Amino acid sequence: MSKQIIQTEAAPAAVGPYSQAVAVSGGKTVYVSGQIGLDPKTGELVSDNFEAQVRQCFENMAAVIQAAGGSLEQVVKLNLFLTDLSKFASVNAIMAEVMPQPYPARSTLGVASLPKNAQFEVEAIVVI
């Protein structure tokens, strides 16, 4: 898989750890369903703590990607869902820790609610 980061000054710069766009050639595309902060052993949220849920979401996503034969380096697009957009900076900080550069393209949405009263959800498109 070849991943090319698209960057132009004719559009606003990214306001977080993501790229404006990513072009991909070759490989298989994997669409990872939304992951919330569930502990895989108990099926319950890991914590009421927002940051703990975000970290668990990325761990769950990484596990699914690994099961598909890929790695976080091959993520080309993320969709993030937050029930409280005031926590956007916290998500950016955690994402910058867990996602390798160059960062994938990304969308972030504020939502009214998520399954099991989760505070955060992430879904991914991966090219392996």
Rank of each mutant, 00 (worst) to 15 (best):
106 R>M: 14
107 S>A: 14
66 Q>F: 05
97 E>V: 09
80 L>Q: 01
124 A>L: 00
93 A>S: 13
30 V>H: 15
6 I>G: 11
45 L>E: 14
122 V>C: 04
67 A>K: 05
28 K>T: 11
103 Y>G: 14
29 T>Q: 15
13 A>Y: 05
56 Q>K: 12
51 E>P: 14
80 L>T: 01
119 Q>E: 01
119 Q>F: 04
49 N>K: 09
47 S>D: 13
99 M>F: 14
55 R>T: 09
120 F>D: 00
40 P>Q: 07
44 E>I: 02
73 E>I: 02
127 V>L: 04
87 K>F: 06
5 I>C: 05
81 F>S: 02
83 T>L: 09
106 R>S: 15
4 Q>E: 06
65 I>M: 08
108 T>S: 12
103 Y>K: 08
82 L>Y: 13
115 P>E: 00
81 F>Y: 11
46 V>A: 12
38 L>D: 04
61 M>F: 09
100 P>V: 11
114 L>N: 02
113 S>T: 03
44 E>K: 12
21 A>F: 12
71 S>V: 01
42 T>Q: 08
45 L>P: 15
117 N>D: 03
95 M>N: 15
8 T>P: 13
49 N>L: 11
112 A>G: 04
115 P>Y: 05
98 V>G: 14
39 D>G: 12
51 E>R: 14
4 Q>F: 15
44 E>F: 12
110 G>S: 10
90 S>L: 15
111 V>I: 01
114 L>E: 00
103 Y>S: 11
95 M>P: 10
37 G>V: 10
82 L>H: 04
125 I>S: 08
82 L>E: 04
23 A>M: 12
109 L>Q: 11
78 L>F: 15
40 P>F: 07
39 D>F: 11
23 A>H: 07
71 S>P: 13
14 A>T: 02
55 R>P: 15
123 E>H: 00
19 S>D: 07
55 R>S: 11
94 I>M: 09
2 S>V: 08
124 A>Y: 06
11 A>H: 02
12 P>K: 00
95 M>F: 15
91 V>I: 12
83 T>W: 00
36 I>Q: 05
14 A>V: 00
43 G>M: 04
34 G>Y: 11
77 K>M: 08
74 Q>T: 11
67 A>V: 00
111 V>F: 04
52 A>Q: 09
14 A>L: 01
110 G>R: 00
69 G>N: 02
60 N>S: 03
106 R>G: 13
116 K>R: 00
43 G>K: 03
14 A>F: 03
10 A>F: 07
6 I>D: 03
12 P>Y: 01
6 I>C: 05
125 I>F: 01
56 Q>W: 06
106 R>P: 06
8 T>F: 04
96 A>W: 08
64 V>R: 03
67 A>E: 07
95 M>K: 12
99 M>C: 15
90 S>T: 10
68 A>R: 02
28 K>H: 12
42 T>L: 12
